[in-house]
Amino acid sequence: MIDKISSIEKEVKEKIANAKTSVSIEEIRVEFLGKKGKIIDILKNLKSVEETKRKEVATLANKLRVDIENKIEDKKEEIKEKEYENKINNAKKIDLTLPTNLNIGSLHPITIVQKELEEIFESMGFTVEDGNEVETEYNNFEAVNVPKHHPARDMQDTFWLENGQLLKTQTSAAQNKIMKKYGAPLKAIFPGRCFRNEELDASHENTFFQMEGMMIDKDVSIANLIYFMKTLLSEIFKKEVEVRLRPGYFPFVEPGFELDIKCIYCDGKGCKVCKHGGWIELCPCGMIHPNVLKMGGIDPEKYSGFAFGLGLSRLAMMKYGINDLRILNSGDLRALKQMYIK
């Protein structure tokens, strides 16, 4: 029996040494240590061993069993390690340069610019308001100091509607409603779509976006307006801008200004964007006309304020270097998809 044990030992060690795979090592385990395994068999049949040798055989067999168990475990580890090594070494090298489908759509450039501006204004304590697109003649003109038959009506070609309403020509059409809604003091911006009855070309659209703002409080001065616009525009263009005011005539402000910024592309040296003048005409603004305040229910003796208009379409064009205004309303995704999300 002792011989048998040593021959089993020899056999099993040989087999373990030769085992190559997890499967074959498992087969070895079953062959020798399984329920009917050769080593287990010896232990099960100790009774048949003569009494005197029984203890020695048992000890030997048990020792062999433990020894083989360990060997198998070690071998298993070794094989697993090798198998991982093989797996890793044989892994297919993935070509990560293959393209992915982002499936990102795009926001309209106006939305992007408008959102950016709204965030700046919100951080400065402005309420964001929304106006109508179809307006009454009163709100669009009379309430902003442009009575019927006033020559200033020529400044804006108007789309008139059959019911006497109109497509708003300017965001100022919301001024009256907003003043009546909030009263003074007031800080509000109101972006929106505006319409002019014009033929289309690269720089004229009948449908475009403006953003207008109003700030009304006690003792608001021209010096305050300049300070505010400078701060605001520096924030918008993300750099310190230099501004200048020129007289400009807009019936709802008095005095009215054209605000220019020193060309941000050439620092005022003169380039294509500023038409070599060094300044870019950017936004009309001014001190709100006392009549406009009065019509909005605000006492012009007590309060004053300023208003300003920003051309969102224009700013979007500047931001993305778009040279044809018509692209914005074209619905052409080959153009619009270039503007992404932010």
Partner: peptide, 14 residues
């Protein structure tokens, strides 16, 4: 709509 569903925002005439 733009980020999750990949749509593109357009502006049209009224």
């Amino acid at each position: 709509l733009a980020e999750k569903f990949g749509l593109s925002e357009v502006h049209s005439y009224v």
